[in-house]
Amino acid sequence: MSAYVVRRVISMIILLLLLTLVVFILFSLLPADPARLTCGKGCTPEVLEANRHKLGFDLPVIQQYWEFMKGLFVGRIYAADSPSPVVCNAPCLGYSFKRGEEVLVLIKDRLPPTIWLALGAFFLWLAAGISLGIYAALRRGRWQDKTVMGISLAGYSLPSFFLGLMAIFFIVIRLQLLPYPSYVSPFENPIQFFQTMLLPWIVLAILYAAFYMRLTRNQMLEVLGDDYIRTARAKGLPERVVIRKHALRAGLTPIVTAAGLDLAGLLGGAIITESIFSLPGLGSLAVNSVNDADLPVIVGITLVTATFIIVANLIVDLLYAVIDPRVRLV
């Protein structure tokens, strides 16, 4: 087991390194000149060159990559030879000259709304998805099952932005049940926080719950047909215990996989939901940075997001063993 963990961690690190390299190569193709953006009006070629140097964009891609990796561990000083050097402390994910801020700080600032959004939606969709899925499985073929499956179909057929816009139109504009979403920290104004987050939570939860309803239902149907469930029932165990202790546990594995990966994906920012509900999260930072060609920030967010997903992959795999004793890690 521990050998497996070590091997997985090593391959994860290799994957991360590879990923940063690919990201660097991909973004080095971008046309917008990041130096140009910091140069402004009255920009002369010399100033442009100086800025490019300051930002480190005059180096070959591989060397930029090396500087970046070095910065992660020992920090980085931009424009060391100029009158106003910029220090970026380790771990340095880069520095946005456009925003005059370390990328790591920017990402940290934007992480809370994204985390709240992801966690809130996560619990909602797991609760709704799993319970409705089990319910449908137990009522297999009856109208309850069909209704749940219908809801599920509707859920995953609705594009998120259409659902979000409809929510704003009906709940906010027409019925005026909630004010226009305007994010504040829950510690600053909990009421406004909940008023703002309620719709995005529900919208995201509907989209994801749809899939979990199906997944849970299918898993349950499969497991409920297995011999050991029949044995458990034959032993006279109450149905509740059969479902919770035996069926659900055995059927949980793919649900955990999907949940882990989905949560990790959401932590990287739900671009569309954030932009519709104007949440100041990672997703909206990403879109703004794309619009501004703020390369260091885009690279930073891509890496952070990808890291979430890769780490989640590892955790999910390790969790398998804990949940399902049948899985052996080799």
Binding site: L15, L19, L26, F27, L29, L30, G265, G268, G269, I271, I272, A286, V287, V290, I298, I301, T302, T305, A306, I309, I310, N313
Partner: peptide
């Protein structure tokens, strides 16, 4: 592992 929406936008 890539945040594909972001990459598609950026590229």
């Amino acid at each position: 592992a890539f945040p594909f929406l972001l990459i598609i936008l950026a590229m």
